[in-house]
């Protein structure tokens, strides 16, 4: 999983296709802006990252000022895409910052058809809307569900447990 060769040392972030890149625990991460996102995935596709194994989101409500590589503006939401190149045996991770007041991002469904379900899941769990997606509906929760469960301001929904009617000690 580590990227031993052809990656810059950690202290000087290099650019990959014009976007800031960094190493996170030895794993290659690239931080395009939302405007560059779809082009970035396309360019990486041409580089050989043909398979999108994972697409998910994250809500940084409690850590709006988290450390990020210089030049990346932290926002509340992130979309995280994991790409893989089976020929180069390499992985790359794409992290896109999304502001809370405009939760839309272009869908990469045309390029990686497998992300159809993953984008639906991210929409379901975080409320991030993927434009151009053929079917932006809930996938895991019931259709009439209100709220997006994995957001940090959505409670876990715990019901207090009462021990009632417990049998007496024998």
């Amino acid at each position: 999983m580590d990227e031993p060769d052809a990656v810059p040392p950690e202290d000087e972030p290099a650019l990959i296709h014009g976007s800031i890149s960094s190493l996170s625990r030895g794993q290659l991460v690239v931080h395009p802006t939302r405007a560059d996102y779809i082009d970035m995935v396309g360019l990486l596709y041409d580089d050989g990252y043909r398979m999108c194994v994972d697409l998910t989101g994250a809500d940084y409500l409690m850590h709006l000022d988290r450390p990020l590589p210089a030049g990346v503006v932290p926002e509340r939401f992130e979309v995280v895409v994991n790409l893989i190149s089976t020929e180069m045996r390499r992985r790359i991770r794409v992290r896109v910052q999304l502001p809370e007041d405009d939760l839309t991002i272009p869908s990469i469904y045309r390029l990686h058809p497998g992300t159809e379900a993953m984008e639906r899941e991210t929409y379901d769990m975080f409320g991030i809307v993927f434009t151009d997606h053929p079917d932006m509906t809930r996938i895991l929760m019931p259709d009439d569900w209100e709220g997006h469960p994995l957001r940090k301001d959505f409670g876990i929904g715990r019901i207090p447990v009462q021990f009632k009617g417990a049998p007496p000690a024998r």
Binding site: D54, T56, A58, D59, M62, V80, N82, A117, M118, E121
Partner: peptide
């Protein structure tokens, strides 16, 4: 491929824990 994307904020609990289930993707 069974993947785990984990974000830590320095506390004792994961800030975000995502499991990439192979069945979920394969089912598509």
């Amino acid at each position: 491929e069974l993947g785990c994307y984990m974000v830590s904020d320095g506390s004792a609990k994961p800030y975000r824990m995502h499991i990439r289930g192979p069945s979920f993707v394969n089912l598509q």
